[in-house]
């Protein structure tokens, strides 16, 4: 069965690239531009994986991760956060909020697919 991925980022470029790459790898991809929209989407259906940016308007990535983990259907769904290389502290915060792992920007399609295949084969 095709796995579905929700990619959350306020940058359209980033969303488009993640979506394009994952679609190419056989995933079904939905997009949201901030945490709030992502929560609304996630509440309506069950995604197999969520990939989220951290710094977003309206509702940031950490709030989204906490919010998702509070939903029964997302208790153990893999959630990856997008961080920049130097964001060690952010990784910790994200993990504490319930993130499964992280993807380091700049965006690298092969790495993305490799990580996604690991956490959500």
């Amino acid at each position: 069965m095709t796995k579905s991925v929700l990619t959350v980022d306020d940058s359209r470029t980033m969303r488009d690239m993640v979506a394009f790459t994952l679609k190419g790898a056989g995933y079904e991809v939905a997009e949201a531009e901030d945490g709030k929209k992502a929560m609304d989407l996630a509440a309506g259906r069950r995604f197999d994986l969520v990939i989220t940016d951290l710094n977003m308007p309206v509702m940031d990535g950490l709030a989204l991760i906490r919010g998702l983990r509070a939903l029964p259907s997302y208790k153990s769904t893999p959630i990856l956060m997008l961080t920049t290389e130097a964001d060690g502290a952010k990784k910790q915060e994200g993990k504490a909020a319930g993130a499964t792992g992280w993807l380091v920007k700049p965006f690298n399609p092969e790495k993305l697919v490799q990580v996604v295949r690991t956490v959500c084969p």
């Binding site: 359209r12 901030d34 945490g35 709030k36 929560m39 609304d40 509440a43 308007p57 309206v58 509702m59 940031d60 709030a63 989204l64 906490r66 919010g67 509070a70 939903l71 029964p72 208790k75």
Partner: peptide, 25 residues
């Protein structure tokens, strides 16, 4: 029997709009 009740989807910052108005590109 049930895990902790889910938080309201709106989240704590939910009401704060980034840029006014709905728009499409």
């Amino acid at each position: 029997a049930e895990p902790a009740p889910p938080r309201p989807a709106a989240g704590e910052n939910g009401g704060r709009g980034a840029l006014a108005g709905q728009s499409i590109r």
